[in-house]
Structure formats: structure tokens, C-alpha cells
Write a protein that binds this DNA or RNA. Structure first.
Length: 833
RNA sequence: GCCCCUGUGGCGGAAUGGUAGACGCUGCAGACUUAAAAUCUGUUGUCCGCAAGGACAUGCCGGUUCGAGUCCGGCCAGGGGCACCA
């Protein structure tokens, strides 16, 4: 039986993560260890940023992974002498708070702040080196006041406007959605089918920046290719021409957009989108009934039904012709839903010979197919499908025999000269719809007045506060409309009767500038101080999920450009380097409530401690790849941290961190080898971190070092200088990943000051190479023998040694050595014939 | 259809053109223990062989090279983005 005294001694001596973690978290907090003085410009700056969380109430492993990665980077940079800014905040407006309000009768603010309190506790338990004085909350007045300011900033520059348009409506969320929030015709949030509604809504003119958003992409060298490609696809620039086709017998011209003006002599009909205003205007009396029917039918289709590519083409003629301005030919005008009103001009010239869709349509409705580009593979043969390549023009009047590229130019030039067309660049990107018919968001600071029209709320009246006297359950309109005190206000311009805009902003507006507020979070007179932004922006390393590849990352780029253009920021790109971390899986499957395979961070903290969680989540996969959470592997990490503890504390009597390291030349045997291990580890880890933060290999190198240390027998009697150096090195290298354990051992070994303000160890270049190396002997590239040798021997000597190896002699036999390749310290390859 | 990424043991994954499988997880065998836990040691790609050793192995087929997981060309498979975008 052990006595209680023995037990307590045992407890102190063994690794107790929970005890040391809360102890150090408190100590760091009290000593303001992680506060950032943003006015200190002596040290180089480093801005490490995680995508801030939505306060759902509980941290999930995706958060743990995201914030651990950023935290390790921040700590690593701090130990490298950077003045590091590593903030945290809350993307705290949004629909779930409102749903909770309806379901549980809790005010959205209360629900949100309760969640924040719990999640902040969890983040602190994770041991993040975050400056909590800079915490921002997008749902708090001191933040959304400036989101409103941003809206007005855009409004005053013509970049925020209201228009009536067919917009995406989600029946479940009871609000409109931005194009970026509709995925395959479904709502990004709840997967329900999105319908079109014609509504008057606020938009941000992101299309004004389409070219710049695209042109800057190659400059973002620190971004993953994947994300750049996604943004490029989303913006989708096409260069071509706009050409006007006059309507026969009417004084109307229909503009069309085409990327293939070289095929314009092959136009055999023209098509309008069903929503095109000219449909109503141009339809003949005979065709009116069938056209009306067709348009009506289209309206009832969902976006998914309409845009299915495998669907058979449908359409109706309008009973009127248009004239091709190039050759005077008259061709019939049709309406069909394969033409989209939102893209180009909502009208297309149809060239069935050289466009697949037109070919299909023309075949079905027996419309003429006229070839104007020669297919070199089948010259003169009838087309059985559209030939969509470029080539040499035929049947094209004066442009015949030109190649497509030249023809495009000349044909466009002619239109320009004659005034019926021009060069045009078209983007797929649409303006960003920012109105939401929801309560829990930033109110749009606009007042409508019958006399003055749309009036911005003056800056001094900001913030426009969210009212509390609202009915959350109201359908189809913003709950803000149910507050009469909110809604009815005097016009700021004339003092007459006015009424407030009752929609709130898309929460993506809130998150489009939060990284600027962190730099100057308490500024009461401006959203931020421009000179501080100049120093701190761009963000040096942004870390977050791939799901924001388009949405948040493009919106933020747009905001930055808009702010830059009036001198508010020096740079026009917010994020210099971007790391998109992979998902956290559990035994190969995505963690989800429905599968019941969620691993709760709190349980892990309780059972193993935060250091194990941090260590494990970095260990098994590189940060960009998906990560599989395996219980047995967590256990392995926990055991390793115990091993670190034992390895260091067991050798305490041999450790003196102040002891100078003897000259390398004087080291011998095991201790010389240990010193080499320490130095190789330092160099290897720095390389791993600098090449895209490969923390998984950082961890394997730490394990190798500890494995060697665990077997190392310190010199008896006096403190061991080389071992002390190894311990000091190990703890510093471990500090960013397992900050609590490293701090505790550092203090126990007599370290001065926090380990987290120590300078990162540097390697001794002399000690990187082991004293003996194994030379591989290859014959014709195949390994035939190996032998140990002192490192650094010259090539000739290695070759001579290799030639004398019995195995080599035996293997070569009668054959002649025709060539020898020697890689010093590595291999000798004998080429024989 | 267009564009991007990824293919390596039972698993996660390592490999500046130079010993493929580091480091782990799992499994197996053993030591310590009355026993268990913890810890430690060995072993763990496949096939042939008692062994020494040998052959085959990085999705497939070619090429460059003294030497290819790595570079080049062509396929195949998986994942992702865009898509009746004119």
C-alpha cells in the first residue's frame, strides 16, 4: 500500500496536463504575455489570422485544427523576433441565433453571447497565444456601426445600389441569397431548392472590379492554386463583341454578345431569353398565344430544371425576322430558355454549324445550318455535329479565307466603324446581393423619403441600432418591419416623413473587413486608423477552410480594393499567404451530428489535455490534407508527451541550461552524436515550417530527437552541457506546438523567463553531418553493397573502396566498368557492360 | 464538356533526380509483473529460400537519365471547381 505522501509526490512528478495547462494559462494571462503593441514598429510585423468562428455554441475539431495551425505559426514567428498580431473574434450575426429566438424564446443577443462565452472558454483552454483585448464581435454596436459606415462608403461611391431584379429566394431561410450562396440551385445553408423572385434589393457593384479581381490573381503567389482557379472560374471572363441586329420592319435593334464574331456569317436564326423585354414588344399577333404560354411555362420551372444540360431544347418563334448587319440576310427570331437573361444581353445570335447548343436547337426545329469555318478533317462533308474549333473562314464574304483570330478582329472593327457593334468583355460574376429579410444582421443605414428619395443615414447618426420590439416569426419580410419605432423616422434631409430600410446585410459583409478592425479595435471615431493599416496589412498568413474559396475571400478582396481606391489602405489585396486546411474526419468519415461521430474537444481536453490535442491534430497529415481523427493515434501522442516529460525530468540532475556548449571539435562519442541530432533537428524543422508548414514532419523530427535522448546516458557526476543544450533545444522547438508542457519543463529545468519569449534556436552548420556515413554501391543502378565510412572522403577514395568490395567484384565478374558516378557521402554507381 | 488537384505497405503518411516506405498507428513475439496497466526490446510491403541471399514493388503504358515515386508524353481511376455563360 502506498501512503498518501508517496502518492502526492508521485502526482507532482508525473505529467499532469490539466493541472499545468490551467496554471500556465492563468499565468500568461496575468502577465499579458500575448498582448500585441501595434505601435511597436522596431521589430518586423507579422499578422497571423484565422478565419473567425460563427458562435454556434461549441468548438468542433475543425476549429481546433484551424486555430492550432495559426497559433503554432504565430508562436514560431514570435520566437523569430517578429512583432506578431494574432487576434480572435466572432462572426456573430446570422440566422441560427434568430431561429433559436423563435424556437426557445431567447433573444438572439443573449443566445449569441452565451455561445461566445462558452467557445471563448474552450479557445482559452486550447492555449492560444491570442491578444484577447482585440476581440471583435460583428453583432456589437461598436462593430456594426462601422459595417454601416462601409455600406455608406460604397453607396457614396456608386458601389452600392438598389434595383429590382429576379433574385434567389430561399423558402426555408425566408430571405434572398447572393449568387455565391446558391450551390447547384440549392441554398448553401439548408440545401433547399432556391426559387426566383422579382424583388427590389441592395447590391454591391463587385462587377466593377471583375477585371482587377482577375488580374491580381497571379500576384497572389502565397495562395493555393486550387483557390485561384476557383475564383478565376467564378469570375469567368470572356472577350468578344457586342453586335446589334436590326428587326425587320421595326425601328428596333437587338444587341447580342458573342465570343465568336468570326462565325457571324453563319447566323441562321436568333434567340431571346424568355424574360427579355423585347419578347413582349416584338411578338407577332399569330404567335402571341404560344409565346405567352411558353414564357409562362418557363417561369414555373426551377433554376435546376431550367439549366439541366441534358434537357431537350425547347422554344417558340416570335413570328418576326431580324437582319444580319454583315450580309443583309434575314433570319427568324425565337424565344428559348437556353438563353439566360442574366448573362450578356439576354439575346444570342445562333450559329448552329459552330455551336453545340445552336446545332441541337436547329436540328430539332429544322432551321438552316450554314458552315462558315472549315473543318480540316472533313472538308466539304455535311456536318453531323457542331464544329466548335477555330479555323479558316468560308462563305463569309470579304472575310473568307481569313483565320479565326484575324477574322474576329476585322469583323469587330467593321462593326465599330459602321456603328453597329463594338468589342466587349463579359463576366460571369454578378453583382453581390447584400439585402437579407432577416433580423439578426447589420441594419442597412438608408431612409426612404417621398420627397428626397433614397437618403443615406448621416455618419453622426450611426449606428442604426437593431430594435428589440420585433416579431421574429413574421414570414416573407424582414422582422425589422414589425417595429414601428424603428421603421418610422423623419427624413434626415428634409425632416419630412421617412421610413427606414428594414432589410439587414448579408453576414458576409460583416466578415469582409473584420481583419482591418483587429488592428485598431477600439477606435471610436473611425473604422480604423489608416496609418496602422498601412503598417500591418496585408495579413501575412491567413488560415481557414476551403469552403470560403469564393465567398468570403472574394468579397474581402473587393472591399480592400474599394477602400484602397480612396486611400484608406495602401495595399489592395488583404491576404498575402493563404493556407486552406483540410477537413477533420473520424475513421474516414466526415464528423456530423447525424452520424453521431463527433469528437468533442472538451472531452479531449479533459482526458488528455490541450497539448495532446494540439500535437495530435498536427501530427498525422500535412495541414492542407484531410485529417483522420483516430483514438489510438491520440493515445500515441499522449504517450509521447509523457515520454518527453520523463526523458527531461529523469535527467534533471544532469541539466544546467546556463552551461556553455563545449567546442564541437572537442565532443566525442554519444554526446557528439546527440549534438548532431539537436542541430539536424533545428535545421530540419525550420525547413519543414518554411515549406508550407509541414507540421507532420516537424513532429516526426521531434520524435526522433526524443527517441535518441531517451537512450542517451548523461555523463555521471557533473551537469552535462550537451544534454542541457539538447533539452533547451527540444523545449524551444516543442514550445509552439505543446506550449504548456514546454513552459512547465522549461521552468522546472531552471529556464529564465517564459519559454515563449525565447529566441528560436539556430543550428551549428558544422554539426549537421554525422561522423560516419553509409556508402551505397550500385551496379547499373541496383544496390549491391553498402559500407560505412568516415564522412567527407573524396570521390576517388570512395570509388577505390567500392571497387575492392568482395561483393562488387563478384557481381561484376567478367564485365567491364565503363563509367563510375560518385555522390560524396552517399553512393558509388558502377556502370558495367 | 472545360479547368484544377490527388494516386506510395493493413492504415496516416516520409523521401533537394541518388538506399522507396522516415516518423507514427495497428498487428505479432518477448522482457518486467502474482496479474493488469504503464514502460521497455524485437518484428511488421509482396513472393522464392532452412539460410546467406535474390526477385518484384510508388495507378497503367512509354520516354529522358548511370540512376525516376520525383522530370517529359500518353492513358486510367478518385476528388473538387465551373457549366445551355453564347
Amino acid at each position: 500500500m502506498e501512503t498518501s505522501t508517496e502518492k502526492s509526490i508521485l502526482q507532482i512528478e508525473s505529467y499532469q496536463p490539466q493541472a499545468i495547462e490551467s496554471k500556465w494559462q492563468q499565468a500568461w494571462d496575468e502577465s499579458d504575455l500575448y498582448k500585441t503593441d501595434t505601435s511597436d514598429t522596431h521589430r518586423p510585423k507579422y499578422y497571423a489570422l484565422s478565419m473567425f468562428p460563427y458562435p454556434s455554441g461549441r468548438l468542433h475539431m475543425g476549429h481546433v485544427r484551424n486555430y492550432t495551425i495559426t497559433d503554432v505559426i504565430a508562436r514560431f514567428k514570435r520566437m523569430h523576433g517578429f512583432n506578431v498580431l494574432h487576434p480572435m473574434g466572432w462572426d456573430s450575426f446570422g440566422l441560427p441565433a434568430e431561429n433559436a429566438a423563435i424556437q426557445n424564446k431567447i433573444p438572439p443577443a443573449e443566445w449569441t453571447f452565451n455561445n461566445i462565452d462558452n467557445m471563448r472558454r474552450q479557445l482559452k483552454q486550447l492555449g492560444l497565444a491570442v491578444d484577447w483585448d482585440r476581440e471583435v464581435f460583428t453583432c456589437r454596436e461598436d462593430y456594426y456601426k462601422w459595417t454601416q459606415w462601409m455600406f455608406l462608403y460604397l453607396f457614396q461611391r456608386g458601389l452600392a445600389y438598389k434595383k429590382e431584379a429576379p433574385v434567389n429566394w430561399c423558402e426555408v431561410c425566408q430571405t434572398v441569397l447572393a449568387n455565391e450562396q446558391v450551390i447547384d440551385g440549392r441554398c448553401w445553408r439548408d440545401d433547399s431548392i432556391v426559387t426566383k423572385k422579382k424583388l427590389s434589393q441592395w447590391f454591391f457593384k463587385i462587377t466593377d472590379f471583375a477585371d482587377r479581381l482577375l488580374a491580381n490573381l497571379p500576384k497572389l503567389k502565397g495562395w493555393p492554386d486550387r483557390v485561384l482557379t476557383m475564383q478565376r472560374n467564378w469570375i469567368n471572363r470572356s472577350a468578344g463583341a457586342e453586335v446589334e441586329f436590326p428587326v425587320e420592319g421595326r425601328n428596333i435593334k437587338i444587341p447580342i454578345f458573342t465570343t465568336r464574331p468570326d462565325t457571324i456569317f453563319g447566323v441562321t436564326y436568333m434567340v431571346l431569353a424568355p424574360e427579355h423585354p423585347f419578347v413582349e414588344l416584338l411578338v407577332s399577333e399569330e404567335q402571341r398565344e404560344s409565346v405567352d404560354q411558353y414564357v409562362e411555362l418557363t417561369k414555373r420551372k426551377t433554376e435546376i430544371e431550367r439549366t439541366a444540360t441534358d434537357k431537350e431544347k425547347t422554344g417558340v418563334p416570335l413570328g418576326i425576322n431580324v437582319i444580319n448587319p454583315y450580309n443583309g440576310e434575314t433570319v427568324s427570331l425565337w424565344v428559348s430558355d437556353y438563353v439566360l437573361m442574366e448573362y450578356g444581353t439576354g439575346a444570342v445570335m445562333a450559329v448552329p454549324a459552330h455551336d453545340e447548343r445552336d446545332f441541337e436547337f436547329a436540328t430539332k426545329f429544322r432551321l438552316p445550318i450554314k458552315r462558315v469555318i472549315e473543318n480540316p478533317a472533313t472538308p466539304g462533308l455535311p456536318l453531323d455535329q457542331a464544329y466548335t474549333e477555330t479555323g479558316v473562314l468560308v462563305n463569309s464574304g470579304e472575310f473568307t479565307k481569313l483565320d479565326s483570330e484575324t477574322a474576329k478582329q476585322k469583323i469587330t472593327e467593321l462593326a465599330q466603324k459602321k456603328g453597329f457593334g463594338r468589342e466587349k468583355v463579359q463576366y460571369r460574376l454578378r453583382d453581390w446581393l447584400v439585402s437579407r429579410q432577416r433580423y439578426w444582421g447589420t441594419p442597412i443605414p438608408i431612409i426612404y423619403c417621398d420627397k428626397c428619395g433614397t437618403v443615406p443615414v448621416p455618419d453622426e447618426d450611426l449606428p442604426v441600432r437593431l430594435p428589440k420590439d420585433v416579431d421574429f416569426g413574421v414570414q416573407g419580410t424582414s422582422p425589422l418591419a414589425t417595429s414601428t419605432s424603428f421603421r418610422n423616422v423623419p427624413c434626415p434631409k428634409c425632416g419630412g416623413v421617412g421610413r427606414r430600410e428594414t432589410d439587414t446585410m448579408d453576414t458576409f459583409v460583416d466578415s469582409s473587413w473584420y481583419f482591418l478592425r483587429y488592428i485598431d479595435p477600439h477606435n471610436a471615431t473611425k473604422p480604423f486608423e489608416p496609418s496602422d493599416i498601412h503598417h500591418w496589412m496585408p495579413v501575412d498568413q491567413y488560415v481557414g477552410g476551403i469552403e470560403h474559396a469564393i465567398l468570403h475571400l472574394m468579397y474581402s478582396r473587393f472591399f480592400m480594393m474599394a477602400l484602397h481606391d480612396s486611400g484608406w489602405t495602401e495595399t489592395d489585396e488583404p491576404f498575402k499567404n493563404l493556407l486552406t486546411q483540410g477537413m477533420v474526419l473520424k475513421d474516414g468519415a466526415k464528423m456530423s451530428k447525424s452520424k453521431g461521430n463527433i469528437v468533442d474537444p472538451d472531452e479531449i481536453f479533459k482526458e488528455y489535455g490541450a497539448d495532446t490535442a494540439r500535437f495530435f491534430i498536427l501530427s498525422d497529415s500535412p495541414p492542407q490534407a484531410d485529417f483522420d481523427w483516430k483514438e489510438s493515434a491520440v493515445e500515441g501522442c499522449y504517450k509521447f508527451l509523457h515520454k518527453v516529460w520523463r526523458t527531461v525530468t529523469d535527467r534533471k540532475t544532469s541539466i544546467n541550461l546556463d552551461l556553455p556548449v563545449p567546442a564541437y571539435e572537442e565532443m566525442t562519442g554519444e554526446s557528439r552524436e546527440l549534438y548532431q541530432w539537436s542541430n539536424r533537428t533545428i535545421q530540419g524543422i525550420v525547413n519543414d515550417i518554411e515549406s508550407e508548414f509541414q507540421f507532420n514532419t516537424v513532429i516526426s523530427k521531434l520524435r526522433e530527437l526524443v527517441n535518441f535522448m531517451a537512450k542517451y546516458e548523461p555523463a555521471a557526476g557533473a551537469p552535462d552541457a550537451v544534454l542541457s543544450h539538447a533539452v533547451s533545444t527540444l523545449l524551444k522547438l516543442l514550445a509552439p506546438i505543446a506550449p504548456h508542457l514546454a513552459e512547465e519543463l522549461w521552468q522546472q529545468m531552471g529556464g529564465v523567463g517564459s519559454i515563449h519569449v525565447q529566441t528560436w534556436p539556430t543550428h551549428n552548420p558544422m554539426a549537421l553531418q554525422a561522423d560516419t556515413v553509409e556508402i551505397v554501391v550500385q551496379i547499373n543502378g541496383k544496390v549491391r553493397d553498402k559500407f560505412p565510412v568516415a564522412s567527407g572522403l573524396p570521390k576517388e577514395e570512395l570509388e577505390a573502396m567500392a571497387r575492392q568490395r568482395p561483393k562488387v567484384i563478384q557481381n561484376i565478374g567478367e564485365q567491364q566498368i565503363v563509367k563510375v558516378i560518385v555522390v560524396p557521402d552517399k553512393l558509388v554507381n558502377l556502370v558495367v557492360k
